[in-house]
């Protein structure tokens, strides 16, 4: 299993945000985390990425325990994420935003950059090359030097995904990637994610509300309601599950 989430509970003061939740994701799977608003999906994400510490329970990446590790270390271990509200670095170009993702692979020291020693030049060239490859793959290379936040919404999404890919993750977490997109864009995004999954050998976990999108792309889903798993399995079965219907009260009829 690429990701195993085991008996995670998270309390915020008196509120139980996540209530003894478990699930697991297999390699190269595209897995959907769905549920009504406020169910705790983003909280769960934040626990996996290390931004929150769970009150109890564990998270395993490729069998290695990553619970309670600092979040930048978890990124280095192979989990990358995007945000619901696209957080690109506003003062930097598209290329620079993506280069930052690669920076952990650039192996030159502080002094080497200050004195411009040879290793600096070779490493920079290397990561710039890799960054360009990702930009070409995602069809955003023409925006390389533009200010990242000046792009269209859809393109910014791509930049954010590119930046996450630059960290060379095993598992990619996407927080509502289809938010704000029309059906055409959503369809394109789904195809893009398939392409990425295949090319980069990734496992993908995403939070989504757009059920058509989830239906199209997710091989498996987990439905969260009030912090508890109420269903895990095939999306076709999810639609017919009584608990799920109760939680959503009819959303699935429109899938």
């Amino acid at each position: 299993m690429t990701l195993e989430v085991k008996n995670i509970t998270k309390n915020f003061g008196g509120v139980v945000a996540i209530n003894d939740t478990s699930f697991s994701i297999e390699e190269k799977q595209i897995y959907g985390l769905i549920g009504p608003n406020g169910a705790g999906k983003t909280t769960l994400f934040n626990i996996i990425t290390g931004n929150y510490k769970p009150s109890s329970g564990d998270v395993f990446l490729d069998g290695v325990k990553i619970t309670k590790k600092k979040n930048y270390k978890i990124v280095q271990a192979g989990i990358a994420r995007t945000f619901q509200n696209i957080r690109l670095f506003s003062s930097m170009s598209v290329e620079e935003n993506i280069l930052i993702g690669f920076d952990n692979t650039a192996k030159y020291s502080y002094l080497e950059s200050m004195f411009r020693l040879p290793r600096f030049y070779s490493n920079e060239k290397n990561i710039k090359q890799k960054a360009y490859e990702i930009m070409e793959f995602l069809d955003i290379a023409q925006f390389k030097d533009e200010l990242a936040t000046s792009l269209s919404y859809g393109s910014q999404r791509k930049v954010e995904i590119a930046r996450a890919l630059a960290t060379q993750p095993k598992l990619l977490l996407l927080d509502e990637p289809a938010a704000g997109m029309n059906p055409n864009e959503t369809h394109e995004l789904a195809n893009l994610l398939f392409k990425i999954r295949d090319h980069y050998n990734l496992t993908i976990l995403l939070i989504e509300h757009d059920m058509k999108f989830v239906n199209h792309i997710c091989e498996k889903v987990m439905v969260l309601d009030y912090g508890k798993t109420i269903f895990e399995g095939d999306i076709k079965d999810a639609i017919n599950d009584e608990e799920v219907i109760k939680a959503y009260l009819g959303d699935f009829k429109h899938a």
Partner: peptide, 29 residues
């Protein structure tokens, strides 16, 4: 300038622009 136009400078600017996103991208802020 050498520092700024290097991965360290990029990381510093990232911390300035959005510290949480910076650590979400693997930077030890």
């Amino acid at each position: 300038l050498n520092i700024i136009y290097s991965k360290y400078g990029r990381a510093m600017k990232a911390v300035r622009d959005d510290e949480d996103a910076a650590s979400a991208i693997g930077i030890n802020t």
